[in-house]
């Protein structure tokens, strides 16, 4: 574990806590893409298939359980909670994410570290996470005003993978033969997809104005 990876995990955890706070405090999920939440639930389930087979550390197991449980809880809230589900922007959250799932799985069948069920599903989860934010970014562009908590959620969700890139660079420089080509390439693509959001987020922070993404 290095400081970059810890910062990345804490930033990721913070983003999830911000989203839970937004839904719990406002009893609303307006501006949140359910499709992105569902994609993240798929990402965590298929990435942590080794949850019960490989014990790395208490921290590792604890965080995996938190990520899986929180993503499923958020999807449940957005689908079934009597109050929260009413504020779901159903008509705006229309990204056909089936293609993202299909393309990620197809790529995982081609590019993986080992041709095993666990490794192919791991690669699938890496590729899917890279594009999982797309429905959310599209929804932010369509729904004019973005509330602060939702904006902060997306910001920290994008920032966490940037910390992971620093972690991979650090490990590549300090550990012999360390490579993470699949996660590294995918992580760069994932972080790049946030580029324009980061720009408009910075503008809104500098001008102390409401976050607005151009349609």
């Amino acid at each position: 574990m290095n400081v970059f990876r810890l910062a990345g995990d804490m930033t990721h955890l913070l983003s999830i806590l911000l989203l839970l706070l937004k839904i719990y405090a406002t009893k609303s999920c307006s501006g949140v893409s359910r499709k992105t939440q569902e994609l993240y639930a798929i990402v965590f389930i298929f990435r942590y298939l080794d949850l019960f087979t490989d014990f790395i550390s208490v921290y590792n197991t604890f965080m995996k359980v938190v990520f899986i449980a929180s993503s499923l809880a958020i999807v449940w809230c957005m689908r079934f909670h009597p109050v929260v589900r009413r504020s779901y922007d159903r008509e705006l959250d229309t990204f056909r994410y089936f293609f993202l799932v299909g393309a990620s799985f197809a790529l995982a069948l081609i590019w993986h570290e080992k041709f095993s069920v666990q490794e192919v599903f791991w690669a699938f989860s890496i590729y899917l996470e890279a594009v999982a934010i797309l429905p959310q970014l599209v929804l932010l562009q369509r729904s004019g005003n973005v509330d602060n908590l939702t904006g902060q959620y997306v910001f920290f969700l994008g920032a966490y993978r940037a910390f992971y890139i620093l972690n991979w660079i650090y490990r590549y420089l300090t550990e012999p033969r360390f490579t993470r080509w699949i996660a590294g390439t995918s992580g760069v693509v994932q972080t790049a997809l946030y580029a324009d959001f980061f720009y408009y987020y910075f503008i809104s922070w500098k001008n102390n104005s409401k976050l607005k993404l151009p349609a």
């Binding site: 490989d54 590792n60 965080m63 550990e175």
Partner: peptide, 10 residues
């Protein structure tokens, strides 16, 4: 592949 390839990252 060495044991360090166990996925130790989240």
């Amino acid at each position: 592949r060495e044991v360090d390839d166990v996925k130790d990252e989240l």
